[in-house]
Amino acid sequence: MAEEILLEIKDLRVNFYTYRGVVKALNGVNLKIYEGEFFGLVGETGCGKSVTASAVLNLVQNPGKIEEGEILFKQKNLLKMSEKEIREKIRGKEITMIMQYPIAALNPVINNGDQIAEALIANKNMNESEARKRTIELLKEVNIPQPEKIARQFPHQLSGGMAQRVMIAMMLSTEPSLLIADEPTTALDVSIQAQVLSLLKDLISKHRATVLLITHDLSVVAETCSRVGVMYAGDMVEIGTVDQIINNPQHPYTKGLIKAIPSDRSKELVEIRGSVPDLVNPPSGCRFHPRCDYTKPICKKEKPQVLQVEKEHVTACFLYEESRNKKSKEEYAGEYKGGANGRTDSA
């Protein structure tokens, strides 16, 4: 079965023009997401996860500007579409998004049921009674007890976990092809997080949707995703299957991140020295170089190329390039020349 590319981000650059200067938020991000997969995007605060997501929906907020790049969704470049076209065909329809604070994302003066019903009427050409009926079905589907009662309540009366379910019901109502979930469980307790994640997994496989899951929790990604991209300071530093990233990380930042998080593996935490740079003045060359233990002169000068480690596994690091070159040149004679992604399209 050939895996189709649903979304491809090519060399995406986003800047924010603030009074402090230009925030170089995305520094040429490349990414492919295949149909039906659960793709995880991880990284620390400010590395550009949410900006990447908002660019896909053409929602980069002022003073932000998409400077360069392509966002191909079902082979069409979203950045070439008019706002009207995106609003009518893509946003909230083909691509929907759930956020960290669902209560803030829901309309406070419309009851929970009507929020979903309105989406159905607007997007699915249903009449009112059809929409109401479908709303209750959807609320049942996301395991909301007493759906009729919850439908009559307002968002602020919901707990965080319940609100996230309502949000998921609403997002699924339009049967999107791509669901972007930006930290959907970060504000929730572990027991509720487990409920929401397992619900999301079940529903996605049932509805055959694709998910871009944004989180700073690598363990969540390890449990729910098939592939993962690691971002640092506006760069995609490594992409691979969950197994490749967790068990055979190549980029020093990925390695550092795994050792710094409290997990089932750690007996102690290893720091990554320094801190995330201010993106008004990002470090030259590889943006991770000031914090890296293996910095060489070239790291300060040039931005590292994206290199293939093995099938589906790529990283952008001079250290990897060097060690690979040492190993053998011929072995890699047929070097991968594609974009920054874990797979060769036409191999």
Partner: peptide, 20 residues
Amino acid sequence: VIPKLDPQKRTKKIILKGEI
């Protein structure tokens, strides 16, 4: 239910019903 990095360490999830 705490998410784990290593698959071997995952046991069957006991998903608690309802909320606190």
